Amino acid sequence: MSIIYPEIPTEATIGVTAPSSGLHRMNYDLLELAIYQMEEKGYRVKVGDTCWMQYKARSASAEIRALELNTMLQDDSIHFIFPPWGGELLIEILDLIEFEKIKPKWVIGYSDISLLLLAITLKTGIATAHGPSLIELRGEDIDPTTAMWERVLRTEPGEEVIQHPSEKYQLEWRNNSGSSSIFHLTENTKWKTISNSPMFVKGRLLGGCIDVIQHLIGTPYGNVPNFQNVHLQNEPIIWYFDNCTMNLTSLRRTLVQMRLAGWFENCSAIIFGRNPVTEPIDDYQETDVYMELAEELSIPVGYDIDCGHMPPQITFVNGAYAEVRIYNTAGMITQKFI
């Protein structure tokens, strides 16, 4: 078996459902603007009821969320699924998803949505896309890094797509009133390696928001060794991680658990997105976490990559063959749909 790459027709329909969090009434305009921008690009948009619901940290009950998601995953008239944004409790619906009935189609998002993305790829071999949320595309002006989501999803099987580091990134979220751009990109981007030497690695991409994907460990939805054997024919993995809220010792504990669970067997490299939680704990620094991991696994480790909650972000495809290059002043990620 190999990786299945969904294809998007010229005239495509987007399914919008909220398997994690929906929107409170005061935020409806955010989704309405995003839908408008998608329609302006020529997409048809089908919006599920869960998007307009939010109560007690989730859009609806697990049963309702799973039913709407399953319906869209099995609907041939919907060509890819774009949740409005992340949330907190997507994990509640995992055992209600009908993985064996999923029709190959793109699912894209990040944060809590990355739990769904990784589970789908590990269970089915269908590629999924870790990239911007739909609501982040509501602006009139989209930066070049974020805008690559569409080029990536429209890459044909057998072809490749190249992405480069952003010029600048967003340090903190601010009110964007009066701006046609959603992000406020003010800080210079620089991809780094823990060894301070160039990195060039090859492998199959897997990853997501480490806060949530860690909870797949030990479940039927997180069997990385089986996926690597069945779908990758034991090719090496390049892991990419976004950290949203974990402090440094929590991050360290999680990485050790992943190693003990076999997630890092036959791993060629690990790359981390920009970390918004860098406060040292008893002199334990962010770079200490990465250095210890590199030494334990004897692999290159990169960090401050365009990935996650400090936008903009590269669109990473779970399951895709990738070549990652990080130089002193530049970098690139090539993804091949093979």
Rank of each mutant, 00 (worst) to 15 (best):
Met26Arg: 12
Pro83Asp: 13
Gln74Gly: 12
Leu31Pro: 11
Leu30Ala: 02
Ser20Ile: 04
Leu90Val: 03
Gly15Ser: 03
Glu39Asn: 15
Asp76Trp: 02
Ala57Phe: 15
Ser59Asn: 01
Ala18Cys: 05
Leu96Gln: 14
Val47Phe: 06
Thr10Tyr: 12
Ala57Leu: 10
Pro9Met: 10
Gly48Cys: 07
Ser20Trp: 05
Phe80Arg: 04
Gly48Val: 02
Ile8Tyr: 07
Ile78Glu: 07
Phe99Tyr: 14
Arg44Cys: 06
Ala34Tyr: 05
Ser21Met: 12
Gln37Gly: 00
Arg44Asn: 15
Glu63Tyr: 03
Met38Tyr: 02
Tyr5Gly: 03
Ile108Cys: 13
Thr17Cys: 15
Pro6Phe: 09
Leu90Glu: 01
Val45Asn: 08
Glu7Trp: 00
Leu96Lys: 15
Ala60Val: 04
Lys46Ala: 13
Met38Thr: 02
Ile14Gln: 06
Ile108Arg: 00
Gly87Ala: 05
Val16Cys: 10
Leu23His: 11
Ala12Asn: 08
Asp76Ser: 13
Asn27Ala: 07
Leu69Asp: 02
Gly42Phe: 06
Ile78Leu: 03
Tyr43Thr: 04
Lys41Tyr: 00
Leu30Asn: 08
Ser61Leu: 09
Glu39Val: 08
Thr13Ser: 09
His24Gln: 15
Glu40Lys: 15
Val107Lys: 02
Ser59Lys: 04
Glu68Phe: 02
Leu73Ala: 11
Cys51Ser: 02
Ala60Pro: 07
Ile14Glu: 04
Asn27Tyr: 05
Leu33Phe: 02
Gln74Phe: 08
Gln54Tyr: 08
Trp52Pro: 08
Ile14Met: 11
Glu98His: 13
Asp75Leu: 11
Asn70Ala: 08
Pro104Leu: 13
Arg44Glu: 07
Glu88Arg: 00
Lys103Asp: 03
Pro9Ile: 11
Ile35Glu: 13
His79Ala: 08
Ala12Ser: 12
Pro104His: 08
Ile108Leu: 07
Asn70Gly: 13
Asp95Phe: 00
His79Trp: 09
Leu33Asp: 14
Ile35Lys: 15
